[in-house]
Design a binder for these strands. Sequence first.
DNA 1: CGGGGGCTTGAAACTGATCAAAACGCGTGG
DNA 2: CCACGCGTTTTGATCAGTTTCAAGCCCCCG
Lengths: 238, 238
Amino acid sequence: MPHRKLVARLQAVLGVSEDDRKKLANMPHAIKTFANGEFVVHQGDRTSRCTIVMSGFLSRQKVLGARNQILSFYVPGDIPDLHTLHLPVMDHDLRSVGPSTLAFVTHSFLIDILVKSPALMRAFWRETLIDAAIYREWVGNLGSRQAQPRLAHLLCELATRLGIVGLLEQDSFDLPFTQQDFADALGLSAVHINRTIQELRRQKLVEWEGRTVRLLRRSELERLAEFDPSYLHLNKYE
Amino acid sequence: MPHRKLVARLQAVLGVSEDDRKKLANMPHAIKTFANGEFVVHQGDRTSRCTIVMSGFLSRQKVLGARNQILSFYVPGDIPDLHTLHLPVMDHDLRSVGPSTLAFVTHSFLIDILVKSPALMRAFWRETLIDAAIYREWVGNLGSRQAQPRLAHLLCELATRLGIVGLLEQDSFDLPFTQQDFADALGLSAVHINRTIQELRRQKLVEWEGRTVRLLRRSELERLAEFDPSYLHLNKYE
DNA sequence: CGGGGGCTTGAAACTGATCAAAACGCGTGG
DNA sequence: CCACGCGTTTTGATCAGTTTCAAGCCCCCG
């Protein structure tokens, strides 16, 4: 059952019936692995299938002038292009950060099961709304915080989202991101990201060696980042 | 028929049948006017109705540290809190910028007509997806452009969105926004917004007196802003 | 006529960018 | 097993864009 993480997420986010759970578990799908940096979908593509992240990470990005702006990250269990159900032309790229394994499900199949199950429709719509809430939070993060709290906020978000799908161990997680990736996501230069990380290390708020990040004194870090997870709408009634 | 602008928008965005159009036109609703700066909904409120902007402007905002970050603007025809259908707890404030007239429609009524009309469901879901696409664009705008193109991009977006609902005359439009509002939206200081406006004026890219903005040499301005309206998904098949 | 909010201006301070180079680490091929 | 090479991280120095603070101005509204 390859969609375990997706099903787990949908359940965490909104009660899904036993019947619907079966439908999800038995979705016809194609599986493909992607190498680091490989494009999954290009800006301007018209697509007729959705992507489910099974392992690894994706970034949504857009080339703006000289920059490669990252608009969001996706973790296992996410459906980064669920919106293509109703907006089939991609207005940005989807790219693998580190190696990843993805499942593809056709729009027609999804539409079919959504039409038959209002609860599932609601759950999927809700997923796209939470995606939007995350962008909103990023707008606030980029618009109003300086480098240190800005980076801290992203780390808190990633930790929380990874926690939902069981990829967090004692506030520690593996990320295939380079410092340049953080720079691209946060609107800062790679050099400044480096110095900001060092500052977080110096303050004993994170351990960060290679691709492994551990949040120390997480509540302290969340205070610094003004992180309030309510925008992730983890409670299925909110 | 108070929802003319909304109906016009939904038609522009996705074909809606004659029957559905009637349903929309006859929605039971309450109308209320708001003064400049008045709050429509507060962060944390649990709401059971949606708001349609009939005239004026709303801003979605959140207090972050010392800043009052504006996350988006809404123009006539928009439904700024459509997402509360599935995420009833607001994670930010909704506030009138200048005086506005708003219509309120209950969730229960909307759910009812959406369940009965898949086309309408699709149209509304799509609206929330376009809302998300706008946030994405803002993330890119804040993360990768400096003051002048950043402001120019926002102006181009507002002009385009106002154009859809017929509030643009020869690239000229009225905005009740102060320079501080632009600062709050763009993550810049009011002083710098002021200097940036002056620079745009000096380059004869805008006329900007009081509350009236006119875009001169719009294509030039769009080039400066790297503005590509495709993210607004005005074409109903994209 | 007075008051106040918004706009404008100037000067100084600061955050983060840029440029450049060195150090590090890791996989590959010899 | 070592040497090479390339991408990433780190460091230093200088530079640029933007903020902050402060004051003055303008204009509309009461």
